[in-house]
């Protein structure tokens, strides 16, 4: 308030160098109005959308704003790709998940960090009849589904040699062929 006539009428903006500030008339709160490039917030303490960090070091050491880091598993045309403080990725694509889109989402397996999209996350596609509890998830790295007894293949789609009847949903049964009449 420059009209009060005292030496403390005008105070320095509590904002980083170069930013201007204003007083909210109703609450008398001081708000920075022109934060340095890439930053925003009442005190320029936040990063712009698409970036994350802690530009004023409010929660620890100063971390300048960096672009969302999501293993190339976000779309640059999307908005709100990561949390502006923690950098947690919020819009993973290519069937990835995790804080940094660094793993495959449920029901998918492969290497979320692979350079080529085709090598990223593929569907588990577990065969329901051969899989324990008809699960749809598999091991992240190998893609191996959890097979019922005497069931084989990555997707639990076949019986082991000498076994049959995968459709039972309880695993495969021994063939019980008579050794005299069978070819092997």
């Amino acid at each position: 308030d420059a009209t009060a006539g005292s030496s403390s009428d005008c105070q320095l903006c509590p904002c980083p160098a170069g930013a201007t500030c204003a007083v909210v008339p109703k609450t008398k709160e001081v708000v920075c109005t022109n934060c340095p490039t890439g930053t925003t917030g009442k005190r320029c303490e936040l990063c712009d959308d698409g970036f994350f960090g802690d530009p004023l070091g409010e929660a620890g050491p100063v971390r300048t704003c960096r672009a969302c880091s999501c293993n190339n598993n976000i779309d640059p045309n999307a908005v709100g790709n990561c949390n502006r403080e923690t950098g947690e990725c919020l819009k993973c694509i290519y069937n990835t998940a995790g804080v940094f889109c660094d793993r495959c989402k449920e029901g998918f397996y492969g290497d979320a960090r692979a350079a080529d999209v085709a090598d990223k996350c593929k569907p588990c596609s577990c065969s329901p009849d051969g899989t324990v509890n008809r699960q749809t998830t598999c091991f992240q790295s190998t893609g191996q589904c959890q097979c019922l007894p005497h069931v084989t293949n990555r997707d639990c789609s076949a019986c082991e040699p000498g076994f049959y009847n995968i459709q039972s949903g309880e695993g495969c049964e021994r063939c019980n062929c008579d050794s005299i009449g069978s070819t092997n």
Partner: peptide
């Protein structure tokens, strides 16, 4: 082709 790149940190829109 097929690979997105996160923009570098110092290049703001």
């Amino acid at each position: 082709c097929g690979v997105f790149s996160d923009p570098p940190a110092d290049h703001y829109a």
